[in-house]
C-alpha cells in the first residue's frame, strides 16, 4: 500500500467514495413492493400503480446505457436522443459565447489601454454585470421575437462580463518593461498589440474565457427551461413533466460531464498560453 503514488492513492479513494455513495443511495431507495403482496384495499387505492420516486442508481445506469447507445435518435419534438439535445445546447452556448468574445476581447483591449475609456465605461459595466442573465429574457423575447435567438442573447450577455473585465485587467497589467521593449524596437501599435500585449495578457484573458464558458453552461440550462423546444435544459424540464426522474438524474449527470469537458478544454488552452516570469 505504501508503494502507491499520490495519484494512485487519490484515484483509489475516489473509486471507494463512488462505490460507497452508490451503495448507500441504492440501499436508501425502498424496493417497490410486488403487486401480489398488497392488500385488496391498497390495490383499490392505486398502490399497485408504478410509483414515481427517486430512482435507484441501478435504474439510472440502465437508463444511461439505453440513452447513450443511441444518442442521436429523433422521434418527434418530445422525444429526441440525449446527443441531439446536448448538441442544441452546445450550439447555443458556443454561438452566444463566440459573439461575446468578439465584442469583449477587443473592447477589453481598448479599456485596458486607455484610462479614459476605462473610467467612462466602468459605471456601465458595474451596473450591467450583476444583472442575472435570465432577467434579460423577457426583453430579449419581446425585441428579438425569436426564442432561439433570445437564448443565444442570454448566453451572450452572461459570458461577456468575465471576458471583458479580465481582458481589460490583463491588458492594463502588462509590464511597462515589455511595452518599452516594443517601443525601443519601433513596433507599431498593431504589432505591439499582437506580439507583446496579447501574449503578455493571454493567461488573464483565457482565465476570463474559462470563467465565461462555465457561467454560460450554467445559464443555458435555465434559459432552455424557459424557452423550451430543444436542448438539455428543456430535456430536464420535459422529463420532470413526464415524471421520469430516472431521465432527470441521468441528464443532470450529463450536464455535469459536458460542463467538465468544456472546462478541461479551456484548461488546455490556459496551459498553452501560460508563461513563467
Amino acid at each position: 500500500m505504501a508503494k502507491l503514488s499520490l495519484n494512485q492513492r487519490a484515484a483509489l479513494l475516489s473509486v471507494i467514495l463512488l462505490v460507497v455513495t452508490i451503495l448507500i443511495w441504492e440501499a436508501a431507495i425502498p424496493a417497490q413492493q410486488a403487486v401480489g403482496e398488497l392488500t385488496e384495499y391498497e390495490r383499490l387505492t392505486g398502490g399497485g400503480a408504478p410509483r414515481a420516486g427517486v430512482p435507484a442508481p441501478s435504474q439510472v445506469i440502465v437508463k444511461a446505457w439505453e440513452e447513450l447507445s443511441n444518442p442521436f435518435y429523433d422521434a418527434g419534438p418530445n422525444d429526441k436522443g440525449i446527443g441531439i439535445q446536448i448538441g442544441y445546447s452546445l450550439y447555443r452556448v458556443l454561438t452566444g459565447y463566440l459573439l461575446a468574445a468578439l465584442v469583449a476581447i477587443p473592447l477589453g483591449f481598448l479599456i485596458g489601454m486607455s484610462q479614459v475609456a476605462f473610467k467612462a465605461l466602468n459605471p456601465f459595466i458595474q451596473v450591467l454585470r450583476p444583472i442575472s442573465p435570465l432577467a434579460w429574457m423577457p426583453l430579449a423575447l419581446f425585441i428579438i421575437q425569436d426564442s432561439e435567438a433570445s437564448a443565444i442573447f442570454v448566453i451572450f450577455i452572461c459570458s461577456i462580463w468575465p471576458m471583458l473585465i479580465n481582458t481589460a485587467f490583463g491588458v492594463a497589467g502588462v509590464r511597462q518593461d515589455w511595452v518599452n521593449v516594443a517601443r525601443t524596437h519601433e513596433l507599431g501599435h498593431l504589432r505591439t498589440a499582437f506580439t507583446v500585449i496579447l501574449p503578455a495578457a493571454a493567461p488573464t484573458i483565457v482565465t476570463g474565457m474559462r470563467i465565461s464558458i462555465g457561467i454560460a453552461w450554467l445559464v443555458i440550462v435555465a434559459a432552455e427551461m424557459l424557452v423550451g423546444g430543444t436542448g438539455i435544459g428543456y430535456y430536464v424540464w420535459n422529463e420532470w413533466n413526464n415524471l421520469d426522474l430516472t431521465s432527470v438524474v441521468f441528464s443532470i449527470l450529463m450536464i455535469g460531464i459536458v460542463g467538465m469537458l468544456l472546462d478541461c478544454a479551456f484548461g488546455v488552452v490556459q496551459r498553452a498560453v501560460a508563461y513563467v516570469e
Binding site: 518593461d177 518599452n180 521593449v181 525601443t184 524596437h185 506580439t195 501574449p199 498560453v273 508563461y275
Partner: peptide, 26 residues
Amino acid sequence: PSLDRGVVFQNYSLLPWLSTLKNVTF
C-alpha cells in the same frame, strides 16, 4: 524611441513567453 538607440534594461526585459532565440530574432 528608435531602433538606432538600443537599450539593455536592468531587469533584462526579455519576453518570457518567447524562447531565448526568439527573443533575439524578435
